[in-house]
Each structure stands twice: as structure tokens, then as C-alpha cells.
Amino acid sequence: MTGQLRAFGLLAIEALRDAVRRRLVIAIAVLTSVFLYGVQRCASSAELVVAGTDFDPDTVNLLLGSGLFFWLSLAVVNLAGLLATDSLAEPISDRSVVLWLARPVSRNTYATARLAGVLILVVAAAIALLGGVTFFLRLHPLPVGIGAALCLLGCVPVACFAMGIALWVPRIVSALLSLVAIQVIVAVNVAVLIGWEPEGWPLWLDRLAPPLGHGISQAVLLWNPDFTHLADPANVALRLAVWAGLSVALLLLAFRRLELPKT
């Protein structure tokens, strides 16, 4: 057990280093910096414009902040899907996975380490993006904390499914499927939140799929006094946690059954 924990740590760090070598970290850091610079400029401009009107700068910041927070949370979930697509599929396609699994490393350890590498990167991006927006727009930290936690919890099933699908289909197809699935689930969840009463598959999608849209909407609902009664973070967290556990189990089962190298 100790040996597997140690191997998990080593391989998770290696998954991160791999992302650095592929310049993914640099790309994410540059995009995040440019974006936050834009937000900071926007925030200061908002105060200048508001100075000559009746608008309260804090209200403007809240409106701007809640919109940005929603879209950034969605971007973080999409990032999890995109990064995860390559994470396990690449060492399988270049067959290097064989060299790691020829060591006393279990398949569960290897797959969870690759997943952890993706999630660490996603958490770092979320902290930078969501934390930056919170800081520059002076948002209330409690809804931000709840929203960010639910967003990150939603990243777990997204990453697991993207990794799992990429074991069987080409990586580009897996990435596209992940992106389409995320947008459809979020769109249905948000439509339901704003009063749509779905029937048929959208109804089942809203009830049974990972509630990604509900998760990333919680912070926005908690900020707005008119919608606070719609917020139910505990229920959403429970559903996301169940999906996270289930998706990790499914990923490990799929990876354990895979014959290597793939022929």
C-alpha cells in the first residue's frame, strides 16, 4: 500500500511535469494572465464610468462578476475535459505506458496518478482565474468558495469520462464528445434553473447526468437575492460527489481491462 502511494505521488508529479514539457502550463498561465489583466482593466474602467452615474460600483462589479464567474467556471470544466483527453491516451498510443506498468505499479495507481495530474492543473487554473476575478471585482468570498468547489467537483467526472472515452476512440473525437456533452448538460441545467420544464431526454439529462450547470450556477444564485431560494448547493454537491466516485470507479475498471499495448 505504501509502495503504491509513493508510486502515485511520483507519477502524479510526472504527469504535471509532462504538462509543463508540452507547454500546456505555459499556455494556460499566459491566457490566465492576459484574461486577468483584462478583468483588472475592466474593473477600474467600470468604476470610472460609474462615477458619473447613479450606479453603485459594487452592483456593477457583482453583475460583471457573476457573469464572468459563470463563464470562467464553464471554461475550467471544459479545460478538465480537454486536458484529460490526452492524459492517459498519449502514453498508451506511444506505448510508453508499458515501461511504467512493468514496474511494481498497479494500473489503478497509474490511472489515478494521471487523473491527479490533470486535476492539479485544473485546480491551479481555477484558483488563478476564479480567485483573480474575486479579488479584482471584490466579490463575496462565500459564494465564490461554494461555486469554485462545486465547479472543481464537476471536473472529476468530466476528466474521468474524457480519459475513459479516449481509451477507445481517437483523442480528437474524445475531446469533441467531451466538449459537446459539457455544453449540452450545462445548457439543459441552466434552462431548468431559469424556469424551463423539460420533457423526454432533457428531463432525464437534468435529473441523472452530472449536474455541471447546477454546480457552476450556485455561486450566481447565492449572489442574487431574487434567486437565492433556487440555490441548493448541498444537493448538487452530493450528486456531483456520487458522479465523481462512480466515474473514477468506471475509469479504473476500463483501464484494468485494457490489453497493453493496444493492438
Binding site: Q4, R21, D94, S96, L99, A102, R103, P104, S106
Partner: peptide, 21 residues
């Protein structure tokens, strides 16, 4: 069992190394 591979040295045909490392 991962322990079956402790103290094993394996050289695959044309070793498939991670290229960027």
C-alpha cells in the same frame, strides 16, 4: 499483483520511451 514485478527488469522490443523526457 504489482509486487510480482518488483525486482524485474524488462526491455521491450524497440523501447517505447516517453519522447519529451
Amino acid at each position: 499483483d504489482p509486487q510480482s514485478r518488483a525486482k524485474i527488469g524488462y526491455l521491450p522490443e524497440l523501447p517505447p520511451f516517453p519522447r519529451r523526457m
